[in-house]
Nucleic acid binder design. Structure first.
Lengths: 216, 216
DNA sequence: GAGCACAAGATAGTCAACGATTTCGTTGGC
DNA sequence: GCCAACGAAATCGTTGACTATCTTGTGCTC
């Protein structure tokens, strides 16, 4: 259960609830399939039901929440099959971003990518999967930003939000970081070489590797 | 302006408004940037503002409607740049679907695709761009369905809905159908040959061709 | 004891009214 | 004649109450 909200100030209620709820779900503070009763949330956040309702409708179309008529809302559980499907879409879009990033990025930005790459290598060598996971997240975010592809960016953010529960699982699997690291370094190299086709191919290779891993 | 709603049957108000509004916008019955006043819509559809509001919130996160605090909603105008970005994403995802469809489709389904291909050829030969456009839409929908990729399907539907206004423009351009036809026939052939890589490549080729055309 | 009908509780859906914010026209001063 | 302050109109944001629907538990019948 999330803490009892914040200031509940005059700030727009829906926006606030939306943000807090999204964060709570995204960070796994709420159990999967947990029931989200409008009345309860309204009291917790100190707003009216209408605001909670609006937030839930929005979260539903973001895929974070599931709503059943007259029955209530709950945190959506993403099955493994679905996680695979989502990952496939993610990678298709990230390949697009990588290709664009390879073309549009300037030298400074490329240097930043390289720095991230070495940091990731170190994290793996030091056996720190959580640091690695965090850096990895940063890398993907950075590539998205470099691409300048706003639409893809928005879609990816949405898709990623649905995967929280599955992300940890993968990062902590022994041997997994080593493999994904090399794939990611290849991706970074391709972008640095400003080679969009290679970047795309590298992202694709990473796709198959990831979905295979998800299959267990 | 859309007609005065339908039966207003026992169907849930929000669902009804949502459907009608979405259709009205998707089919271009509402001018771009047209103001959508909650009160007016409520009266037109014979429901209360709350229901309209809920529908508008949902449409906003689908990207069909733009809402500004205390200022109202309006039909979102998609700039050409944005249309290009959307098309890029569409194609990345459709390439994924095509590749999967090439693997999973059965003989009967492949025959259906082939039939669509010949119908499209005929439409172009007969100089009927609207029929061609419609068939084309069917083709893409079919491929999506064959892929069995639910997530990609949902994303694509959403992206397509945002492009209505730009679609006609392209279909009616002289010479355009001929080019896109050959690309699409290649795509169909690749899927029929159950060759995922070629299918993906064909979809990609179509991507560049389409975005180039959008650039004018 | 099993199954069905009914009633009670919980919860989302809908509604009408009130309050806040923005926009735009009007008036007064300079 | 132009600009600023004021005020009215329009519109969204919020609220509390009411209603419809679903779930669950209970008692009655067979």
């Amino acid at each position: 259960m999330p803490k009892h909200a914040g200031p509940s100030t005059g700030e727009q209620a829906r926006q606030q609830v939306l943000g807090q709820l999204r964060q709570a779900i995204s960070q796994g503070e709420m159990a999967p399939a947990q029931r989200l009763v409008e009345d309860e949330l309204a009291e917790q956040f100190g707003v009216t039901r209408a605001s909670v309702r609006a937030a839930l409708i929005e979260l539903e179309s973001e895929g974070l929440v599931e709503r059943i008529r007259n029955r209530g809302s709950r945190v959506r559980v993403v099955s493994v099959d679905e996680a695979i499907a989502i990952t496939e879409c993610r990678m298709a879009l990230e390949a697009l971003c990588a290709a664009k990033a390879a073309v549009t990025a300037d030298d400074e930005q490329l240097a930043g990518l390289a720095a991230l790459g070495t940091a990731m290598s170190r994290a793996v060598a030091d056996g720190e999967p959580l640091t690695y996971s965090e850096l990895n997240h940063q890398l993907h975010t950075r590539i998205r930003e470099l691409s300048g592809q706003q639409v893809a960016m928005r879609l990816l953010e949405r898709l990623n939000a649905q995967l929280v529960r599955h992300r940890f699982q993968l990062a902590l699997r022994p041997g997994r970081p080593q493999q994904s690291l090399s794939e990611r370094l290849a991706l970074i190299e391709a972008i640095r070489a400003r080679d969009p086709q290679r970047a795309e191919a590298a992202a694709h290779a990473h796709l198959t590797s990831l979905t295979d891993a998800l299959h267990e």
